[in-house]
């Protein structure tokens, strides 16, 4: 894929200190994100996959400036967000929106759908005048597949899928360039997930949006992403375009993840070989030495215990952090 880079994350690190007991001493350091770099081009969707605790959500929150990174740079439209003052940041952040997993907990239950969508239009002075705002709300509702009369409803009167549409409309109200989609369909029923995914794709085509799509469902990520990054314990372990990553994964963790996804076809499932990883994800408080994946890796050798593998370009455009790749 070619095109202008919209967002570039350079060596992002986010460590959380765990406060000590009685005397407030430092007890430990959670290495939630531990040196992550990637770029997203304008109009592209980058998928970020991994299991819980791998740091994918924290990465998204750092980009949104909801967390202050411990170190690293976040270049959005060429400017480093970590170095901006409050006023500049407010202006930039408008163009950087988020859609959350659980639309119910991210919508104010005391506001109508119309008020929820109109509020940012008012606060940021995007649309002036109550009448003009009402028109804009109606347009936004239509854009996300809702009806004008939904403006008068409260979130609890809507289904999960409709609530997620409201969350999307609110994000669109800000006319963003980049939307961080953090598990936007995982709380929805299967039959509704496809509706929302199609909507996100239509909006991208129509408005030229750029997505960072954070999810744990590998099939959904393959469907929506142009390129995909796989995270494990705070690091990107593999990054490639969609087809390469799914057809020819290089990292043993990516291979195990793909093999663990059950496929809705009993005959195929009976024939298929499953790589069942031993053990569980280690604590980011005390990550293993060398390659963080080595204790669970089916092909680890001695040097994996000592050497930290760099994310390197094994083939053009295909990056993997594995000594054996």
């Amino acid at each position: 894929m070619s095109g202008e880079v919209l967002l570039e994350v350079r060596n992002l690190v986010k460590h959380f200190e765990i406060g000590g007991g009685l005397f407030g001493g430092r007890r430990g350091l959670v290495r939630a994100v531990d040196g992550v770099s990637f770029a997203i081009r304008r109009g592209e969707t980058l998928g970020l996959v991994g299991e819980s605790g791998c740091g994918k959500t924290t990465t998204g929150r750092c980009i949104l400036q909801l967390e202050t990174p411990t170190s690293g740079e976040i270049l959005f439209e060429g400017r480093d967000l970590t170095k901006l003052g409050a006023d500049e940041l407010r202006a930039v952040r408008r163009r950087l929106q988020v859609i959350f997993q659980d639309p119910y907990s991210s919508l104010n239950p005391r506001m109508t759908v119309g008020e929820i969508i109109a509020e940012p239009l008012h606060v940021h002075g995007i649309v002036r005048g109550a009448g003009a705002r009402r028109d804009r709300v109606r347009d936004l509702l239509r854009q996300v597949g809702l009806l004008p009369q939904h403006a008068g409803r409260y979130p609890h009167q809507l289904s999960g899928g409709q609530r997620q549409r409201v969350g999307i409309a609110r994000a669109l109200a800000m006319e963003p360039a980049l939307i961080v989609c953090d598990e936007p369909v995982s709380a929805l029923d299967v039959s509704i997930q496809a509706q929302i995914i199609n909507l996100l794709e239509d909006l991208q085509a129509e408005l030229g949006l750029t997505y960072l799509f954070i999810a744990h469902d590998l099939a959904v990520v393959r469907h929506i992403s142009d390129r995909v990054a796989v995270m494990y314990l705070g690091k990107i372990v593999e990054l490639a375009d969609r087809k390469t990553l799914y057809d020819d994964p290089l990292h043993p963790y990516t291979r195990a993840l793909l093999s663990a996804v059950p496929i809705p076809d009993p005959e195929l499932e009976a024939r298929r070989e499953h790589i069942v990883l031993r053990g569980e994800v280690p604590s980011p408080l005390d990550p293993p030495s060398g390659c963080v994946f080595h204790p669970r890796c089916p092909i680890a050798v001695d040097r994996c215990r000592q050497i930290v593998p760099e994310l390197r370009e094994v083939k053009p455009g295909h990056w993997a952090a594995c000594l054996l790749a």
């Binding site: 299967v190 039959s191 793909l258 496929i263």
Partner: peptide, 21 residues
């Protein structure tokens, strides 16, 4: 039909079930 599948070629578009439960 509505779920994307890893064993099949990627579809240009998903086929959702329209409407709400």
């Amino acid at each position: 039909r509505s779920v994307p599948r890893l064993d099949e070629p990627r579809r240009a578009r998903l086929d959702p079930i329209e409407g709400q439960p």
